[in-house]
Write a protein that binds this DNA or RNA. Structure first.
Length: 586
DNA sequence: CTGGGCGTTAGTTGT
DNA sequence: ACAACTCCACGCCCAG
């Protein structure tokens, strides 16, 4: 291959060893007939163009000879066959037919949220983008016009968001226009509440979590073949997926690029729901319910231990908490700029403009597992610690990097923290040695490892013994006892070659540990993959070996963000893709 | 040393 | 079938 020379900028970048044949360069603009052109040291060509043509023919012949074209054709046809065989599932949320043809419609929330008694102003019908309303047109215009503009385009002024508001924020495009969506959402939240109560009750007479006796057997049993285990849960590309911890009921939530939160009751009895929908009771969303508590990508979702609260962290600079029992999205943290009107806010002065956003969240379990305290990392290299108990405060604001920090992870010992990000390193810190606000980057961390390329994620394993990192250098590294080492870590315990180049349209891969009920030797993690046919991969932490590549008809796209169910009796793995679809393997 | 520009990547939706 | 659209990723090159 090294003799193939192409002249585009990119090919010379990707094929650094490309031989530049000097005559090609030196005679680039000289087609004069007085010279002859040498190629392959054999043939003489009268003109430059003839030489180029010959070269192209040679290259073509080489491609055919190499079998690359055949291989590509074979791959293309298998991919095409897969595409044809499995069209995207229709299960889950649907685009409203009326809205599909038009641009974004004015939201109903305008008049509702403004608190105006504006009866009868509803979008009655839409066709071809034209909106017919009942009620007075000017009133609609005013309602839209005076819709309050919130800080940085956030969904509201930071006050608690009711379930109804969160549903209405979704806009007409994704809300079923049969008017039953709200009922369905209400009913669903009731269901969620009873799931939580049941789980709490079970926890009270707790027996130790079921221990998996034969990991490999459980892994082998995972299946991705049932189409009923796929649903469109969010409108846009998924940034985060998480399972409610209740083992009694499989409830999966996903957050997307635009701040939508979809919660899917996977085993909702669809026949019953369709019966009900015929009676006009609830809508047929296949157990999927859509809310919009944020205005930017939801980067992290985390349930508290009892499954009663869901924390969502977004690039929009806010962290919200869905309280299942109170049925409200409470804003527990938000960044603001340094205008004096915000001086009483917890996040005052933490938003420094366009290049500043909150990148990720990690719950701090040191003071109970209710989600009261958490760490945040920012696009500007800060790590924050927020304590929402009492009045709520920023208890740590430390700059740790010049570049974006993609993840923070706290060791179970409660003081070793791992950060990883665009500065191409994993760094370990002792948070006991940090306090308050510091803009100075500490000169030394306890230990660090340099991947050479950006690091998508670095997480401590449940035992704390290991760290798994996913890097843009196309590796997954497993470090062992990194929290006990110091200085530069030159060699990971094991290094897995893994294609992590997802490009700009897919969320980056982040290998995630199975959270519980695994022994130290059984620790394993899940990660998405670019492999054809589409696969969700599970690796052993101890050996770095691939334990299982889950494939099946139900997985038709790359699952960029994956997670395990924390404590279902049976092994459950969930993946979210770039079009908002969630796939459950079990 | 920084920032602009470009290329890569996969899947859905509209024509 | 095919083209358009996505564009809060990141690496690399290259100009200033």
């Amino acid at each position: 291959m090294s003799t193939i020379t192409r002249r585009t900028r990119n090919s010379s970048a990707t094929n650094g060893a490309a031989n530049k044949e000097p005559d090609e360069n030196s005679t680039d603009r000289d087609d004069g007939p007085t010279k002859s052109f040498t190629f392959d040291n054999v043939t003489f060509y009268a003109t430059y163009q003839e030489m180029v043509t010959a070269k192209r023919q040679r290259n073509q012949a080489m491609l055919i000879q190499s079998g690359l074209l055949d291989a590509k054709a074979a791959l293309d046809s298998t991919v095409a066959a897969q595409r044809a065989a499995s069209a995207a599932t229709a299960r889950g949320i649907k685009r409203s037919k009326a809205a599909a043809t038009g641009e974004n419609l004015p939201r109903r929330k305008s008049s509702r949220l403004a608190g105006e008694a504006a009866p009868n102003i509803f979008v009655e019908s839409e066709s071809g983008g034209r909106i017919q309303t009942s009620g007075v047109d000017t009133a609609v215009e005013e309602a839209v016009l005076y819709e309050p503009q919130h800080y940085s385009g956030r969904v509201n002024d930071g006050s608690p968001l009711s379930m109804e508001q969160a549903v209405n924020n979704c806009g007409a495009k994704w809300v079923n226009d049969d008017g039953t969506t709200m009922d369905a959402a209400n009913q669903f939240v009731e269901t969620l509440g009873s799931v939580v109560r049941e789980y709490r009750g079970a926890q009270r007479h707790a027996s130790p979590t079921t221990v998996t006796h034969n990991m490999q057997k459980d892994l082998d049993a995972l299946s991705l073949d049932d189409e009923a285990n796929v649903a469109k849960v969010t409108p846009e590309r998924i940034y985060s997926v998480e399972c409610n911890p209740s083992p009694h009921c499989l409830i999966v939530c996903a957050g997307d690029k635009l701040g939508y939160l979809g919660i899917w009751n996977v085993d909702q009895d669809n026949t019953a729901s369709q019966e009900a929908s015929k009676r006009g009771k609830i809508s047929t969303t296949d157990g999927v319910h859509l809310f919009k508590p944020h205005s930017g990508p939801i980067s992290t979702l985390s349930w508290n231990e009892s499954g009663s609260k869901l924390l969502s962290c977004s690039y929009d600079g806010t962290v919200r908490m869905l309280d299942v029992e109170k049925q409200v999205f409470q804003e527990v943290f938000a960044t603001y700029n340094d205008e004096q009107i915000y001086k009483d806010k917890i996040g005052f002065g933490l938003d420094t403009g366009f290049n500043s956003w909150v990148q990720c969240m990690e719950l701090d379990q040191r003071h109970g597992r209710d989600g009261d305290c958490f760490f945040l990392s920012t696009s500007e290299g800060h790590v924050l610690h927020i304590d929402t108990r009492a009045k709520g405060q920023v208890t740590l604001n430390q700059k740790l990097s010049e570049k974006k920090i993609n993840t923070v992870s706290l060791h179970p010992n409660g003081f070793t923290m791992a950060t990883a990000g665009l500065d191409t390193t994993v760094k370990l810190w002792d948070i006991r040695k940090m306090s308050g606000t510091s803009k100075k980057i500490p000169k030394t961390s306890i230990a660090s490892q340099n991947a050479g390329k950006s690091i998508n994620s670095a997480f401590f394993s449940p035992s704390g013994k290991r760290i798994v990192t996913t890097t843009m250098a196309n590796t997954i590294d497993i470090l062992e006892d990194a929290h006990l080492s110091s200085g530069l870590i030159t060699k990971p315990k094991s290094r897995i070659r893994h294609d992590n180049i997802t490009g700009r349209w897919l969320s980056t891969f982040m290998a995630k540990w199975r959270p519980s009920s695994s022994t130290f030797a059984d620790e394993c993690f899940v990660v998405g993959s670019m492999v054809h046919p589409r696969t969700i991969e599970i690796f052993s932490g101890a050996s770095g070996k691939l334990l299982r590549g889950i494939q099946g008809d139900a997985l038709t796209a790359v699952a960029s963000r994956c997670c395990f169910h924390p404590n279902a009796d049976k092994l459950v793995v969930v993946g979210g893709n770039s079009s908002g679809r969630v796939t459950v393997a079990r």
